[in-house]
């Protein structure tokens, strides 16, 4: 894995936690976007854990630059930014998971497991932020098709902190379907959030 965060203490803490989970090795660290691209090219990691707020080259641009690499590393964004617009941008640029920094280490671990298996991931507080923006109606009903009820239900369950497995059994569907719905919600998020 490669970790990128502007703050050294965050990088230390993440390395310490992740290596404590077992089955992960942190092979590189970067404090800015440019450094991250260099570390990724040098170490070819399976997974990247990165903030989107990075100096030199912001996280969304880094994601876009990496999008062409095949097979590319799987990317989880870990940030204190919870704006739906940024979440959408991150996924559109190739991220597979998005975790809020206010979340617990257990949630981070869950994100690593899911993304490593090829599923997408949204942490509960990100799901909550998306749900609130849907409820406030910032997702325009004119330019975007209305989000199906089942997807709203899914967001509600994710916001409560339910795991994918629990959500799947509550909605009577499979992990793959949950994954599809989640990506579909992200696809429906607006390009720009109107005031």
């Amino acid at each position: 894995m490669v970790i990128a965060d502007a703050h050294q203490l965050w990088r230390h803490v993440l390395k310490c936690l992740i290596e404590g989970f077992g089955s992960y090795a942190v092979v590189g660290e970067a404090s800015d976007g440019q450094g991250l691209l260099e570390r990724v090219a040098a170490t070819k990691p399976d997974v990247i854990l990165m903030d989107v707020a990075l100096p030199a080259l912001d996280g969304i641009h880094v994601l876009r630059r990496m999008a062409g690499t095949i097979p590319g590393p799987r990317v989880i964004v870990l940030s204190e930014i919870e704006e739906p617009e940024i979440v959408r941008e991150a996924f559109a640029a190739g991220a597979m998971g998005y975790v809020s920094k206010c979340e617990s280490a257990a949630i981070l671990r869950r994100a690593l497991v899911m993304v490593r298996r090829g599923f997408s991931f949204l942490s509960p507080s990100i799901a909550r932020a998306l749900l609130e923006s849907l409820q406030r109606g910032t997702v325009s009903r004119f330019s975007h098709p209305q989000v199906p009820l089942v997807e709203v239900e899914l967001l509600k369950l994710l916001a409560k902190g339910c795991s994918d497995r629990t959500v799947a059994s509550m909605l009577g569907s499979s992990l793959n379907v949950v994954n599809f719905y989640r990506l579909d919600i992200l696809r429906r998020l607006p390009r720009t959030v109107p005031e």
Binding site: H12, V13, L14, L17, G20, K101, S104, A105
Partner: peptide
């Protein structure tokens, strides 16, 4: 700190 992950990591360190 309001960032739980950071708190848990600092505790470990």
């Amino acid at each position: 700190d309001d960032h739980t992950i950071l708190r848990q990591g600092l505790r470990k360190i």
